[in-house]
């Protein structure tokens, strides 16, 4: 069992200029659990997720990882870059567009953070990178550049890059949305394995099947608000809120033929 982090968000607000992207977000993410975030486009799911590792700077409220405030030492007093980097080390992130570094091979992509951030020797980093790649089923692709890999393989390398850092929390921002349908399964299956090992995961997704079967809790967002957080069953199968019902109706209409 790996060490897993918890996340607490209290009254988190985020503005882009005058536009309020997050409104008084309250969310508890228990350690070792999978939290899925769903909601219409532009509702603030990515913004919320990116506030957790302070890739997006929230304007007020608190985001705590294992009780530790991220981004600020005190209200309006930014944390030092060094402290922030230390906290980010144990938070893995996976992006919709993979964001692999194209000038490095798969193994170099994975080893880079180990060498530069964790200060591990090149030989050890290579060994750990190979292990991480093997874990996502890509042992044979370690010498390939990203441009030689399919979307599903690229995303699995990106997951390997994150888990090689031995994070205690993993953030996924629509990890399968850029993939051809037939490649979605291989990525979800890696994520399911990770969840089974007790990793704390926050997953923004449109894969309702994944949310229904893997999530411990599902949050629904709309217009910057976290409308409701509840069990997958209560959000996805017996939603009481009209906004969730209408969102799911649209989703089902689009996905049926």
């Amino acid at each position: 069992m790996l060490a897993a982090s918890s996340v607490e968000m209290r009254k988190v607000n985020k503005y882009y200029g005058k536009f309020q992207a997050l409104k008084d977000i309250e969310l508890s993410i228990p350690p070792g659990k999978v939290t899925c975030l769903i909601g219409p486009s532009g509702s603030g799911k990515s913004t919320l997720l990116r506030c957790i590792n302070f890739l997006e700077e929230y304007d007020s409220g608190e985001v705590r990882i294992d009780g530790q405030l991220i981004g600020y030492d005190a209200p309006n007093k930014k944390m030092s870059g060094r402290r922030l980097r230390e906290m980010r080390r144990s938070i893995g992130m996976v992006f919709q567009q993979f964001n692999l570094w194209p000038h490095m091979t798969a193994r170099e992509n994975v080893a880079e953070g180990l060498i530069r951030v964790r200060r591990i020797s090149k030989a050890d980093a290579d060994r750990r990178a190979s292990e991480a790649l093997a874990k996502v089923g890509l042992a044979d692709k370690s010498a390939s550049h990203p441009s030689r890999l399919s979307g599903g393989q690229q995303q699995r390398v990106a997951i390997a890059r994150a888990i090689a850092m031995e994070p205690k929390l993993m953030l996924f921002d629509e990890p399968t949305s850029a993939l051809d349908p037939e490649l979605v399964g291989e990525v979800l299956s890696v994520m399911r394995t990770l969840a089974g090992e007790g990793m704390t995961m926050v997953v923004v997704t449109h894969e309702m099947g994944f949310a229904a079967h893997v999530a411990d809790q599902v949050g629904f967002m709309e217009k910057g608000e976290l409308v409701s957080v509840d069990s997958p069953d209560r959000i996805l199968h017996r939603p009481e809120d009209a906004r969730i019902q209408s969102f799911l109706r649209t989703y089902h209409e689009r996905n049926s033929f």
Partner: peptide
């Protein structure tokens, strides 16, 4: 996203520039 991926794993700004942005 190129720089973001590097920032997210905790790279320093110098590393982000010399390892990710400038080579490309």
């Amino acid at each position: 996203g190129q720089a973001e991926a590097a920032v997210a794993i905790g790279m320093t700004p110098v590393d982000v520039w010399t390892r990710v942005i400038l080579p490309q």
